[in-house]
Design a protein around this nucleic acid. Sequence first.
DNA 1: TGGACATATGAAAGCGGTTTCATTGAAGAA
DNA 2: TTCTTCAATGAAACCGCTTTCATATGTCCA
Lengths: 345, 345
Amino acid sequence: MAKISKANITISDIAESAGVSKATVSRVLNSPELVDEKTREKIEKVIKENHYSPSATARNLSKQISSTIGVIVPEISNTFFGELFEGIEEITNKNNLSLLYCSNDDNKEKDFKALDMMRTQRVRGLIYIPAVNYKELGLLKQVQQRLDGLAGPVICVDRSIGLRCDEIYFNDRKAMYEAVKALAVDGHKRIAIINGSKQNVLAEERHNGYIDGLKESGIEVDESIIFRGDYKYSSAYSMTKQMIKLENQPTAVITCNNSISKGFLKAIYETGKSIPDAYMHIGLDKIEMLNLLGIPYNHIERDSYELGKRAVEILINRIAFPETKLQQVVLQAELELQTCRLVKM
Amino acid sequence: MAKISKANITISDIAESAGVSKATVSRVLNSPELVDEKTREKIEKVIKENHYSPSATARNLSKQISSTIGVIVPEISNTFFGELFEGIEEITNKNNLSLLYCSNDDNKEKDFKALDMMRTQRVRGLIYIPAVNYKELGLLKQVQQRLDGLAGPVICVDRSIGLRCDEIYFNDRKAMYEAVKALAVDGHKRIAIINGSKQNVLAEERHNGYIDGLKESGIEVDESIIFRGDYKYSSAYSMTKQMIKLENQPTAVITCNNSISKGFLKAIYETGKSIPDAYMHIGLDKIEMLNLLGIPYNHIERDSYELGKRAVEILINRIAFPETKLQQVVLQAELELQTCRLVKM
DNA sequence: TGGACATATGAAAGCGGTTTCATTGAAGAA
DNA sequence: TTCTTCAATGAAACCGCTTTCATATGTCCA
């Protein structure tokens, strides 16, 4: 029972040093109640003395399952996803699961590569935010095939593109509908929208909510104030500049994620205009700093930390009970209007 | 060569279906030049038809190395770390390495747990931001032991606590020194600092830089305007409130990370004061939105995306050449004073 | 006293790959 | 023609762990 002088200590070393078989050591590790107390204590002592820690690789291979959960996310530096990720981590950590991370940059090729990696890594389950609207592109089958090839179940988060798996997302359409209605009630008749591309499901959802709201309020759809870019700061910035030059100005603007909102605000402030004097504005997702500084910021609030936590819980449940019916969980996005002043008419 | 009807296709299935041995299939996967073209094509066809993807688990076990890099980070929702993480991901992705993520919440217990997990997972290398200043706590040996027990090398990022491994961090002390000097040159004699706790190395570095700057400028150190909290928003907020009540007010304030800066700003704005009228202010790390909105924000700029990229490069290099001398890379933090107005004296 | 049963342990197979070593056949050299 | 060399492949061991199955020992009861 002397210290083992070796770089990589294995279960065999421990067994030998303790004078027992590998099987017994393995039992101490996995179901200690099966082994005699004296034997167990002896083995535990050897394990401790040598700082032995069993290899997850070997264990996973042997058990035919891994202890890691995969996550595929667009971009982690957007705080919406950053907080989502923290929510995920809280729960996986509690359950002693590791997290394998991959970003897809809203990009089909990277997304496929990420899925392949998750396959190769045989993750126990996958938390998946699809990069693009594969349904629209006619690639749904290809993606589904990849999901089916995974070792574990998948939960599709933040957007629904028609994949055969559990889903959890916010009710963006309804929230947009309500945003438009709130603006209409305040007297706005020309409500612009700056949105992501048609390839993005969420953009479509939001677009539809916008249309719903207009119709309900008896406002005619005007294509000239419907802007579609790519959910990125820079495209929103240039579209806003474009909008500012329009002859027939909107009186209110809705921006469809926080990067777009930032690009929009940048363009506005650069031009010397201000919110809400130039335009009434409602953004999607909060922008923490604005709130902190007391700058009015009407927005649709979505708690992504909660989204992350719930997603993992559903996934873990699915792993435990693979055969139960697939579920779609819809979280409510809340319209937070802090300073929705009336417009002069 | 018919389609294999089976859930988990293994290398043996492929071998059988192609009428060759496992060894040959393995060669096609790893060193195709060793196998005859015809055989190779046949095998590749079978692989493709069956969507076979080799198990990383099995491969890792067999090769005795894994293909994943571990990352231990305080909190991913702080954009400093978010961008750091994206930098990391860019390089690992290029090198076909997976990323195993773990947060430590600036918390010793979680940090140790994370290290143990990295050990168990046998990561190929580790990117490590230590939770606390273990040197100060007398726990350096324990941590070093954990690092030594890992399967691969470690790079310690963003702070140096005296661990035996490669390191990369910003020259915070110098940047702080320069910040203080710039304020002194502008006529400030009472410069407050809101900082993290003494347990945090970075906080100490920054503190020292602050003291250096005061001394160099012939300003006496005044403990009553040196605030120490925990690098969190809320503690900064309450310390600022406390500061505002002080009889002998400072004329300038330095805040030592972006969470502290936010807490500080919140308290300031809430009190109806404004920057830079109430206090001249220099923060550490940028706050993106302020810049966007044209709100003046003097700060020390640290490019964490770059930090992440460099860290992985060093780590990969270390994996390739384990015996070369350990390196310490110091990146320069840049003082960005956008509107450093003179104070009335 | 002997048989049934429970408890504690070990031997060995298996997880899905890689790698070493041996074997085979063909090409080139003598 | 025979010997050498090399390219292509397969058999089998191995990586570190889990798990099944068999065995040994002890306990209980008839």
